[in-house]
Nucleic acid binder design. Structure first.
Lengths: 199, 199
DNA sequence: ACGCCATTGCACATCGATGTGCAAAATGAA
DNA sequence: TTCATTTTGCACATCGATGTGCAATGGCGT
């Protein structure tokens, strides 16, 4: 390994990420072409399509888990924790989006759900905590609220992708929206997001 | 037409809807088997896979548009209109979900986006109206908020499907959640949803 | 019992995607 | 330049899905 191949491998993964976000069923040929490379070359880096996707999801799951847990370190208020978590995840939105996008389809590589599960559970716990304390208000059980939370982020990522939302302030807007969806009053959500973003 | 074939055709569409929700790439064989029928039989009712999907999306788009516009008739308050719209759409959640699900993938039958567009636009207008009046509060532009709105519903449908949310009160819970996501205070959202559901 | 219709069970051609093999270029470091 | 690594350009086998044709079979009303 001279390092050239390594760089190409990484570029391939970047392109594949983008391409699979555009079309979860993108073929190896589509991905290769998008990377300016012949199909055969991709197989030089990844032995199979599943291997490529597996590498992508491993990478993504790791990044999401890291962002999530780092954001929650030493934070006691559920609302602030949620805001931090959203801002952190927003930084790696694309990879998170890939996970959710691939997890939504039934038959793909097994284990995407499993890899997302820790994050889901942590999120559910956080929401439950907030509901118990009365910081969050919702007629939904925490688990259902976690679904909503996930989809809110997903929707905003799509909005940015489609040009309906300027990327500049999208992160804090996402935090405010997710908080209000959890029942936090809009003004308090706005203050919280700003405070967290500044620090 | 003896009517028997008609009934079978309808049953096929029902099964196909369920199957395509489970897996947007479900093959004709999967759908046929799920309907307790041989693949060849499906082609007796629909000349092609696209024709089947087209029939499903036509049906769905029509139902959604009807529910949406009927719910908005003679309602002036944006919040109440939104609540009514959500409850109405919730009744036909499956078909709406199919549209969104299929629209998310890039290459399918043309025109799904086009067929969803009127609903999207009506929704955006409604949200804009509410934002202008101060009934809704959000850092997001109306168009982005429409994305969120759509995904909130989608997330809750999934939650019901996965058993994370009991179907009984899911409709009004969806209304409350969508309203709070738009920045309506939680207590007011709850009262509104209840009032609308009763009448 | 008859006949109509829908359904069935094959066979078939076609298409696109996956994954592999191998020899010929191209690339870049020494 | 030289040499190893990487990429390329085919050819090939395989698989699964689509769509069609046709004869046989079934059910249901009359």
């Amino acid at each position: 390994m001279t390092g050239r191949a390594d760089a190409n491998r990484r570029r391939l993964m970047d392109v594949a990420l983008a391409e699979l976000l555009r079309d979860p069923d993108a073929s190896m040929d589509q991905i290769a072409r998008a990377a300016g490379v012949v199909r055969r070359t991709v197989y030089g880096h990844f032995p199979s399509r599943d291997a490529l996707i597996s590498a992508l999801t491993d990478d993504a799951a790791e990044a999401v888990a890291a962002a999530h847990s780092a954001a929650l370190r030493d934070v006691e208020d559920p609302a602030e924790a949620l805001a931090r978590s959203i801002l952190a995840v927003w930084e790696i939105a694309d990879r998170y989006r890939l996970l959710v996008s691939l997890a939504q389809r039934s038959v793909t590589v097994e284990g995407i759900m499993r890899r997302l599960e820790p994050v889901r559970r942590a999120c559910t716990e956080l929401l439950q905590h907030g509901l118990d304390q009365g910081v969050f208000t919702s007629p939904l059980p925490a688990e259902a609220l976690a679904y909503v939370h996930e989809q809110v982020l997903f929707g905003l990522m799509q909005a940015v992708n489609d040009g309906a939302l300027p990327p500049r302030k999208a992160g804090s807007a996402a935090a405010v929206t997710a908080l209000t969806a959890a029942g936090v009053p809009a003004d308090r959500a706005a203050r919280l997001a700003e405070a967290v973003a500044v620090r």
